[in-house]
Design a binder for these strands. Structure first.
Lengths: 340, 340
DNA sequence: CTGAAAGCGCTTACAG
DNA sequence: CTGAAAGCGCTTACAG
């Protein structure tokens, strides 16, 4: 592969026998250019395989048509779904996206944000962060529009797109209570996520509404992943009066809970009803298919992008967009044994 | 939020009472700068929250420390795992990554590559592409280093990182044959993927080695997703002599196959053994836990990045890196009924 | 409709 | 060790 010198606007100007200015205008379809001249220039540029330098352009326009996305972990299917929506919406509008994993490490998140600032991204979206780097002081002094998606610390200082955690888990717990369950467990998270607190609140509200006394022993902590949920379910099942149904913080937790239940010889849902939160793509194919609260992941990503683009354009935009979750009833829940 | 004017190198130079050149050198820790002066400048820049403009720098250095990653669909867990490894390796070396979904649309893939060219990415990684945009002519005239990862059309013109499809599926099929299965089905893909052909070849080699006659009726086409596999398994099960074991093109197909088997009242693995390919994170938690061929997704992403960085640095690099798969035996396979 | 010129914010020979 | 100057490749008032 020989080193081909990158063509510049000057090269095109020379072959077209016009000035740089005219080439620049022609390539952006400026009406200031004579139609025939414009067409000729575009044809020449295309044939030569000319690619204008985004860096040079952005230096003068002071925008890069670029957004930065910070995620904790792109391997998390929820995050991947969100990013997919972000990328789609961005691509539609001619924006490119920088993707960076923070791995939930504050130091790395800080490095990432710094790098985004140097690259002069027009805006930043942060998904599901639970780390400390993005504290209010940092947020407020940020010179770049910022949108948080399901962030653990939505702030006055930033715009947010969030799932309605409380409403979603209320619906999930109501579903279980209406099936006749009285002992309903909650497998949460352990990182002090606000989402965990909100989901727990929805669970409590449903219990209260159904006249079921809240029992603190039935609320245990997982880690949002299968392993943590297995241990957490273990705790619940060793209670003197174990639950007949458990609402899990997310589908990954529910996956672990199903696994653990089976390992202990319990059938789901006959012996134990299980509900998740997210509705990951795979959840419908699990055995049994999982009852869960759907988060429209891609749609939320699109919403976050639209909010961000509005901020970039300095258009008005609601401070916080709350997206409703939808209860999807599948086969991992049924009436408790006693009532059948 | 007031519009804060971005600080430039000139501002720092002024407050430090030195020239732009010295600031530039100091910020990059050049030994050409007096130590104390350098420290002062760096302190001033830090306090002021100065962020050098990557665009301005790259205009003169002719590199952007940026790589472009084209994926078919970031929601695919295999792809997400690969991207995670790419991002990690890139971040370690100070590179930022642009992520773009092609959605397997040739037109979009073309747009993406063009945009990457305009952004002057230092290199491009394309994952699992099956679309036509990246044909040999396009590859060869590409002025940017390119690495393909599990691409359907590895080419003389590009470097590649690939899983050993043939070897992996050979191991999987051997596992089934050694368990005593004689009627072993294959649920493939339908898009003419080279990976499909290679996995099928490994399957055939195992059959041959175990003295099992190849029966074309036992090879059917899914679509790499649960739905396609369900239909494909249906075909197999309606055969006069249905298989007692099926090797699936990937874990997503196996997920659909398990689902379909259950729907037909078959137990996995007692009535039907099932093997996948990928070892997605969730596969260990499925019911039953899935026997599969592991692709080290993140590691492959890292390898692709390292290969790409070597190309960027114009260092020697092997044209094609073939990564071995590893058979992971779990609970979705057992001996066929007759032999138990 | 077109072009010459200035300028975006850096880096880097070059001269001292 | 430091600075003045040129230049990277664009865009855009400004003048014609």
């Amino acid at each position: 592969m020989e080193v081909v010198k990158r063509l510049s606007i000057k090269d095109i100007a020379k072959t077209a026998s016009v000035s740089n200015s005219t080439v620049s205008r022609a390539l952006r379809n400026s009406p200031l250019v004579n139609r025939e001249t414009g067409e000729l220039i575009r044809k020449l540029a295309e044939e030569a395989g000319y690619r204008p330098s985004a860096a040079a352009r952005s230096l003068v326009t002071r925008r890069t048509d670029t957004i930065g996305v910070v995620v904790t972990n792109i391997s998390d299917p929820f995050v991947a779904g969100v990013v997919s929506g972000i990328e789609d919406a961005a691509e539609e509008r001619g924006y490119s996206v920088f993707l960076a994993n923070s791995n939930a490490e504050p130091a790395r998140e800080k490095r990432v944000v710094r790098s985004f600032e140097e690259r002069r991204v027009d805006g930043i979206i942060v998904t599901s962060s639970r780390v400390g780097a993005l504290h209010v002081p940092m947020l407020t002094q940020m010179e770049v529009p910022l949108v948080l998606l399901n962030n653990q610390h939505p702030s006055e200082a930033a715009h947010s797109v969030m799932i309605d955690n409380e409403g979603g888990s209320y619906a999930a717990a109501m579903h279980l209570a209406r099936l006749g369950h009285k002992r309903i467990g909650y497998i949460g998270d352990r990182y002090g996520h606000q989402s965990d607190a909100e989901r727990h609140a929805g669970y409590e509200r449903a219990l209260a509404e159904m006249g079921i006394a809240f029992d603190a022993a039935l609320s245990v902590r997982g880690d949002g992943k299968p392993e943590g949920a297995r241990a957490a379910l273990g705790q619940l099942l060793e209670l003197r009066e174990p639950p007949t149904a458990v609402f899990c913080y997310n589908d990954m937790s529910a996956l672990g809970a199903v696994h653990e239940a089976r390992a202990r010889g319990l059938r789901v849902p006959e012996d134990l009803s299980l509900v998740g939160f997210d509705d990951l793509y795979i959840s419908q194919y699990l055995n049994p298919p999982l009852t869960t609260v759907r988060q429209p992941m891609a749609e939320m990503g699109r919403l976050a992008t639209h909010t961000l683009l509005r901020l970039i354009m300095k258009e008005a935009s609601s401070q916080i967009v709350k997206v409703p979750g939808e209860l999807i009833v599948r086969a991992s829940t049924c009436r408790p044994r006693e009532t059948r």
